[in-house]
Design a protein around this nucleic acid. Sequence first.
DNA 1: TCAGTGACTGACC
DNA 2: GGGTCAGCCACTG
Length: 111
Amino acid sequence: MEENDNFFEKVYIVARQIPYGRVTSYGAIAKYLGAARSARMVGWAMNASGAAGDVPAHRVVNRHGLLTGKHHFEGTNLMQQLLEEEGIKVKNNKIVDFEKFFWDPSQALPR
DNA sequence: TCAGTGACTGACC
DNA sequence: GGGTCAGCCACTG
């Protein structure tokens, strides 16, 4: 049963809307959901993204474009590798030109 | 019920 | 520019 009322489900839906070769931040998703102060909840939802299905959690990074969640992926460099596969440059666990690859759900998706 | 924890963010120094 | 502190909300023990 898809309980879209759940905050987690909303995060998953937005995360799946992230286009190829693009990245976004936890705060951006939280703000789109109307809970900019609950950015930590977005990260918490990502923690369970593996159980939710196909959620490109590797496209979600912190405000500074840092791969803070890479430690939660299977490999130590899996998250970085996935991003590089999409054409995103990653240097020292940080996305290069993060602002250029940044994808804002508030602008890409209808309110 | 209370307290601790966490894939964050903004403000402050 | 980089480190530290506090606030935020949901889940677990």
